[in-house]
């Protein structure tokens, strides 16, 4: 008999991915890498939603993940456009040098 995987295992995996995302968000200095760690955190939360949807045998949690994906896609498009605009104005991607809204 192969031991079954507890739902808590998936949740702990999601927590680990989320914490790594928080750490990467804090120590990365490149604005694109910071944006990617936000995507990692969104993915970790999505795994939590899918695990709970599996546990309750409902699809509402999976639909929530679908909406999160849509919002993440919109966020990535707008965010990367903002990054391109910042790079045109500042000629840098380092967040330490991007600390003023005014040029």
């Amino acid at each position: 008999m192969i031991p079954a995987v507890p739902i808590a295992g998936y949740l702990v995996l999601a927590a680990l991915l989320f914490s790594i995302g928080v750490g990467a968000f804090l120590i990365k200095r490149n604005i694109i890498s910071i944006f990617m760690s936000i995507e990692l955190m969104l993915n970790a939360v999505n795994l939590t939603f899918v695990a709970f949807a599996h546990m309750w045998n409902r699809v509402q949690g999976q639909i929530f993940v679908f909406f999160v994906m849509v919002v993440a896609a919109a966020e990535a498009a707008v965010g990367l456009a903002i990054i391109i605009a910042i790079f045109r104005a500042r000629k840098t991607l380092n967040v330490d040098q991007i600390n003023l809204m005014k040029l």
Binding site: A8, F18, S19, L26
Partner: peptide, 29 residues
């Protein structure tokens, strides 16, 4: 480095503690 890694580790420990203490109620996949 000084403040971020302990903070992230604290988040992970808190979440895992909650999930593992409720392990019995969560069931199996």
């Amino acid at each position: 480095y000084i403040a971020g890694f302990p903070g992230a580790a604290a988040i992970f420990c808190l979440l895992s503690f909650v999930f593992l203490s409720e392990r019995g109620n969560l069931g199996f996949a």
